[in-house]
Design a binder for these strands. Structure first.
Lengths: 198, 198
DNA sequence: TCTATCATGTAACCAGTTACATGATTTT
DNA sequence: AAAATCATGTAACTGGTTACATGATAGA
C-alpha cells in the first residue's frame, strides 16, 4: 500500500513544491526556503539541499534543465520538475495529510525516564520547560501577527497555528503533570523505591 | 552552554538508563527495550543498537566488561556504565526535560503546503487523519488501562499520557481547521488563486 | 585597497539502515 | 528429520552533516 518514498527526506517535498511553479537552481531554492519561513518547519542546510536535489534527479522527479553561468560565479544548474515528480509530490502530500506518521519526540523518551529523577527536581525542570514554552508561544504569536499585518492570508499560517495548538496542549499537560508529581503519596513512594540509589 | 552530545541518538539515552542498574549485553538490552514498551517512543532496530553501543564505548560512557560464551552461540559482550556515562546520562535527561527541542513533525510541512490542494480534497484528507487519530487514541487508552490493571504505576505511563494529550489537541485543531476550510470565502478565493492551475 | 561577507559549491567523514550469515532450538 | 524461528551478530551501502574552497561584491 504505502510504497516507501524514493526520497523520503521532507526537504524533498518542499523542493518539489517550489519547482511546481517554475524551474530553479539549488541556491535560489535555498533563498526561497528561508525567505518564506518554511525553513522553520524543516531541517534544512545548504548541503542537504544539494544532496536532496541530486537524489531527486537520480529518482527522475526532476531534471537538469540548463546550466547558466553569470560572470565568473560558479555555474548554476537549473532543475525542472518532471511529470512523475508532479505525481510523486501530490501523492506524498496527500499521504502526509491523511495519515499520521510515527514520529519520536525526544520529550516522550525523557518522560519515560522521569522516575529516575527525584520528584522535587523533576518538578523544577518541568517548570523551566513550561517557561520556555511560554516564550516560544509568544514569539510565534508575534510572528503570526506581523504576517497578518503584512497581508499574509491565514491559509499560509496554518502550520504556525498548529504549532501553537501543540505547544499550548503541552503546556497544559505540564501543569497537570507537575501537580501529580507534588502529590505526597508519590513523593513517599519514590523515596521508598529510589531513595537509596545515588 | 549546551555542549553537543557526543552520542546524540536518543537510543543511547535509554541504553545508559538500563545500564544504570546493571551491566548487560546488547541483545539483552534489545529484549528489555521491547519488553518494557520503550521501543514505542524511540527508533530502535537491532543494528542501530549495536551501533549506538559501539559509539557509547568509543565515547567512554560504557566499557566492555567481559565476554561470555554460552554453548556454541556467538560471544556476547557485556557492557557496564562508567562514571562519566552516569554523569552524561543525568545531564542529558535534565536537559531534555527542561528545554524543548526543535523537532520537525512532518505534518507541519504538509500543512505549510495545504494551499496546494483543493479545499474539498483537503477537508476529506483531514477527516481521514482525524479518524486515524481517534483509532490511535483508543489503542493507547486500552494499552494504558491494561497496564494499570497489571499494577503498573502511573509514573511509568506518563509518556503515554503525554502522547494522548498531544493527539487529543491535534484532533481538536483538525476540527477547527476543517471548519475554516469549508468557509465559502476561502473556497472562492482558492479558486481565484489556484483554480486555473491543474 | 584591504577586509568582510555573499554566492556557490565540493569533499570527507560519520551515522543509520538494509541485507546477509549462521548455529541453536522448537514445532510439525 | 525437515521446516521454521530464535539468538546473535557483521557487512555493505546510503544518507546527512561538518568542514573546506574560492571568486565577487560591498563597506571602511
Amino acid at each position: 500500500m504505502d510504497r516507501r518514498r524514493k526520497v523520503p527526506n521532507p526537504l524533498a517535498l518542499v523542493v518539489l513544491a517550489w519547482l511546481l511553479s517554475q524551474p530553479l537552481h539549488p541556491y535560489e531554492l535555498g533563498r526561497r526556503l528561508q525567505g518564506s519561513g518554511q525553513d522553520r518547519h524543516i531541517k534544512y542546510t545548504r548541503s542537504s539541499l544539494y544532496m536532496v536535489v541530486e537524489q531527486l534527479a537520480r529518482a527522475g522527479f526532476i531534471t537538469e534543465q540548463e546550466t547558466v553561468r553569470d560572470g565568473q560565479r560558479p555555474e548554476r544548474t537549473v532543475y525542472a520538475i518532471t511529470d512523475t515528480g508532479r505525481t510523486e509530490f501530490y501523492e506524498w502530500l496527500r499521504g502526509l495529510v491523511a495519515e499520521p506518521q510515527d514520529e519520536y519526540p525526544q520529550f516522550a523518551v525523557a518522560l519515560s525516564l522521569l522516575s529516575l529523577l527525584a520528584p522535587r527536581e523533576a518538578v523544577a525542570l518541568l517548570r523551566k520547560r513550561q517557561e520556555a514554552l511560554t516564550t516560544k508561544v509568544e514569539e510565534t504569536r508575534k510572528l503570526m501577527q506581523e504576517a497578518i499585518d503584512n497581508g499574509v492570508r491565514w491559509i499560509f499560517l496554518v502550520e504556525e497555528q498548529y504549532a501553537l495548538a501543540m505547544m499550548d496542549a503541552e503546556s497544559r499537560y505540564l501543569t497537570e503533570l507537575t501537580s501529580s508529581l507534588t502529590d505526597p503519596g508519590y513523593i513517599r513512594s519514590w523515596q521508598e523505591t529510589f531513595g537509596s540509589i545515588t
